[in-house]
Structure formats: C-alpha cells, structure tokens
Design a protein around this nucleic acid. Structure first.
Lengths: 170, 170
DNA sequence: GCGACTGTCACGAAGCGTTATTGTCA
DNA sequence: TTGACAATAACGCTTCGTGACAGTCG
C-alpha cells in the first residue's frame, strides 16, 4: 500500500505532524482509514486533497474557506474567493510598500526610486535617442498597456503626464 | 490643562480605549499622572511618546521592540531595528508578489507581468541590440544597483539568473 | 439620579507550535 | 526492554476587541 502514517505524510508536504492533527480536528483533512491501533493512514485521496489545500493556502485563503470550498466543490465560489483574496493581497502589497518607504525615511536613506532622468540616461547609454524612446513607448503601450502605465507611475510621474505619454504612444 | 482622559487621547491617535489600556499594562505608555479617582491623565509628554510609538508601529516594529527602543533611547539600536525590519518587509513583499502571481494563475488570468522576452523585444524596437543591452545593464547596475535587482526580480527571474546578470554588468 | 465615562479583571480569536502524558510497533 | 513513533489534551504566542461589574464625573 502507498498509505502513509501522519509524520511521513506531513513531511511530504513540508508540514508538521501537529498541523495535520489540527487539520483533522477541524475536518479539513481527515483520513478515511485508520490502523487497528487508531493510527491515521493517508492515501491517494488524501494526497490529492492535500495538494489543493496547500495550493489555496499559498494563495492566502483561510483554512475555513478552503474547507468549505473543497467540500462544496463549487467553481464559482472558488472563483469569488480567489477574487477577494486578490483584492486583499493587492491592498496588503500597497501597505507594505508604504511601510518600506516609511522605514527608508526613518533611516534617512535617499529615495531609491528611479527617476525619469535616470532612465533616459540609461537608455541613452544603450544607444537610444529621442526617436528610439518613442518607438519604445509605442511598443510598450501596444504590448502591455497596463504595465506601461504602472511603469510610468513607478517613475513618479503624475496621472496627467502619464496620460500624455500614453496618448503620444498610440 | 491640556491633559486628556483615556478615550479622548485614544481618539486623537485613532486608537481604542482598550489599546491604551493594553499599552499601559505592558508598560509601553503609562501616564505619569492620575486623577484623585485614579483616572489616567495623558499630557504633552505622553503625546510625544505616543507619536513615536505610532510611527514605529507603522514601520512594523513590535510593541516590545518599541518599548525597549524608547526606554533605551539608543540611536544605534533604533537603526539596527529598522534595518532588520526593512529586510523583513522586503521578504514579505516578495512573498506577497508571489502569492499574487499564484492567484492570477489559479484564476486563469493572463499574466500581467512583463517577461524578459517582451522587454528584449521592446528594446529591439527602440534600436537596442545585444551590445546595447549590455551597456544598459552596466549603467543600471552602476547608477542604481538595488533597483536593478528589483527590476530583474520583477521580470520573474530567479536569484541565480539575477546574480549572473549583475556580475556581468560590473 | 442619569448617562457617559472610568477602573480592573478576564476571555476570545488564527493557526498552529510545543510540551506532557500515555499507548503501540518492531 | 528499548527507542521511535502514535494518540489526545491543553497551554503559549501576538495585539488587542469585547464584554462584565462597579465606581466617578457633570
């Protein structure tokens, strides 16, 4: 049999035995079969379920959400949960970036943000002139408009300037 | 007098009464003076200390760390703590970005992330060839090494590749 | 005397980690 | 008998939120 006892199974997924005990207790992953001594036996079904659990955990879903998603097996609910998580993650990202900037300030670090001038200078060193930059913006806007905007925003430009550049790049 | 009772002081900093009670209990912010009835009175000194507490909290330091930093009043310790926090924050940022990407994958969203190939293509449209790219990386590494690393990371390269490129750009 | 406020406990939550004690297998 | 492993149960961690109950202020 390929059935494993709890510690072996835990190690397979980089978890601790205590974690699996907890997952069993909350009904997230309860092995169907046990030893005659009461030992939990984890087989193929548990492995499959566990893979999804780990995946959704990495995506940041709570154990409770994962449990109900796996038990319902409903695609739209999953989709919704992931959308929510994505929004939440984006907010956390923004907050963390703000925190990073604050710490930099407190440390008296020069702002490490790139400036437009630095970019222009770097491109010039690579042999790109005014006309080349225009071609570059055009390609950027055509192939990845959202990233283009994010890039310009990251250079510290305000929305008006960004819109102007993007308009010129059509 | 400008001394405030606990709830007024809490609201001034956007905190709750319970939070200030807690801060008092752990010795992070204990008002020197009290009413004859035992009411806590928060004055100018408390206000100053509280401002620093809030600042360091925003920077992500633990209450315990903040307490010892404020009590020691040691600049090098503060600097060290902030450096540590900065490193930790950067790691969290990286983890969150990875999570975001995973969720995107699970949602079947088109990768909004730029790829190396897209960049190369865009640079080529702007007239930059292999040699130009090398000059560009050199300028990037020379003028803004940290941003260079972050940029490469943002393209989805792993640490090995990033280190290789940076080494070649010396 | 009434409502808004204060005081001091004390429990709860997330997601396990970490003992402690006892039972089972080779 | 001896380790290595299994079981359950329960406390610990972090930063407060949320009552409960009684005293105080205006």
């Amino acid at each position: 049999m390929s059935e494993k006892t709890i510690t072996a199974f835990a190690r397979q997924f980089g978890l601790s035995r205590a974690t699996l005990l907890y997952y069993d207790k909350i009904g997230l992953l309860s092995p169907k079969t046990t030893n005659q001594a009461g030992y939990r036996l984890y087989g193929v079904d548990e492995e499959k379920r566990m893979e999804r659990v780990c995946l959704y955990r990495q995506a940041g879903l709570s154990l409770e959400d994962i449990k109900s998603l796996l038990d319902q097996n409903c695609d739209t609910a999953l989709h919704q949960a992931l959308e929510d998580q994505l929004r939440q993650t984006s907010q956390q990202l923004a907050a963390l970036k703000a925190r990073q900037r604050l710490i930099m300030d407190l440390l008296g670090r020069p702002e490490t943000q790139m400036t437009v001038n630095q970019w222009v200078k770097m491109l010039e060193e690579a042999g790109v002139d005014e006309a080349g930059r225009k071609l570059w913006h055009q390609a950027f806007e055509r192939d990845a408009p959202q990233e283009h905007e994010a890039f310009l925003y990251g250079l510290g430009l305000d929305q008006t300037e960004i819109d102007a550049i993007r308009a010129r790049s059509q």
